[in-house]
């Protein structure tokens, strides 16, 4: 039983999760952003002629910069319907923006191949691949249910994850009475019962600017779980599960537009899943200014060329 809970929790810590449980099934429209499918001008790999090569982000940004209008039309829902390469091409044309503060609702989605299946299911293929595809999608839904979002404590350079407060999970925690708790706006079916929902603040992480594992041309905001044993309220179990002696979870995020960030979660530098962070109030307040071309605060290194082409 403990194993199962830990597995579920692992899925939760890896990423984000504002979202209704079955939103994907509502098949949101594809965003209108321009994507590149051309390959680099190079010969085949002599050692593996089937190896896929992807368009260089610098070239992509030069030829198909992501406009503010395109970014404004991106939503947590329509991003989740894209193939992983398309999600990557969005991420590679974003910058870190300001480091978020306060509570942000989260959503997560696993990598999908070009056919719409989860990448894991696509790699394995055939009947087994179909089964794996279903399992991954199930895990995704569980993740949505458990992981609610992230609390950013910007001044302290710390972040904590909002995990659904379920009595059932107390057996996984060294001392449940010491876990910081908070109220967040209720989502989904919970909002029919109450306007707020209780969550635990678990899995602390350090918050700083740093290297993107996808696009090195500019920094991302990094959420690193490796060195958190000195954070107030740290509990060996379950917090170390995400830490340097555990799965070495490391998230990175970039700003799509005010109030909306796109993130990537890695375990020991192996890419796991995408996630989104959303603050509806900031998103609403900031949209017009964003479309009007207001400057974006960059708190991390924006690269040598920045996003000038897209602004």
């Amino acid at each position: 039983m403990r194993k199962l809970f830990l597995l579920l929790l692992l899925i939760a810590v890896a990423g984000g999760g504002y979202w209704f449980m079955f939103l994907r099934d509502q098949a949101p429209e594809r965003p209108s952003a321009d994507f590149a499918d051309e390959k680099p001008a190079t010969g085949l790999d002599p050692d593996n002629p089937t190896r896929e090569l992807h368009v260089d982000f610098a070239e992509l940004e030069r030829t198909k910069p992501l406009t503010r209008e395109e970014r404004a039309r991106l939503t947590p829902a329509n991003l989740a319907g894209l193939s992983q390469e398309e999600v990557d091409q969005i991420y590679g044309r974003l910058s870190a923006g300001p480091i978020p503060d306060g509570y942000w609702d989260g959503g997560l989605f696993f990598p999908r191949g070009s056919g719409g299946k989860t990448r894991m299911g696509e790699i394995i293929g055939s009947v087994l691949g179909e089964i794996v595809n279903e399992k991954v999608q199930f895990a995704e839904r569980i993740g949505h249910g458990l992981w609610q979002g992230k609390f950013f404590f910007k001044e302290q350079g710390v972040l904590r994850n909002a995990i659904q407060d379920l009595k059932l999970f107390e057996i996984l925690i060294d001392d449940p009475t010491k876990v910081p708790k908070a109220e967040i706006p209720a989502k989904g079916w919970r909002s029919w019962i109450s306007s707020t929902s209780d969550v635990w603040q678990l899995f602390p992480a350090k918050l700083h600017c740093g290297q993107s594992l996808l696009d090195g041309r500019r920094e991302s905001v990094i959420i690193d779980y490796a060195y958190t044993d000195d954070v107030d309220g740290y509990q060996e179990l379950p917090d170390s599960l995400a830490g340097r002696r555990g799965l070495r979870i490391r998230d990175e995020i970039r700003m799509v537009r005010p109030g909306f960030y796109l993130g990537r979660a890695y375990a020991d530098r192996i890419f796991l899943l995408n996630f989104t962070l959303y603050d509806p109030a900031i998103a609403e307040a900031g949209m017009q200014g964003f479309l009007n071309g207001e400057d974006i605060t960059e708190e991390c290194w924006p690269g040598e060329t920045g996003l000038a082409a897209a602004n």
Binding site: N48, E52, D56, D88, D215, G216, R218, R269, E304
Partner: peptide, 25 residues
């Protein structure tokens, strides 16, 4: 960062369809 890091593989990227699986020029 400006030009070639994106063309290096990540040692642990194991999905051949993923960026950073192998080198690119």
């Amino acid at each position: 960062e400006q030009c070639w890091l994106n063309h290096l593989p990540d040692v642990r990227a194991a999905d051949p369809g993923q960026r950073n699986y192998g080198q690119s020029p």
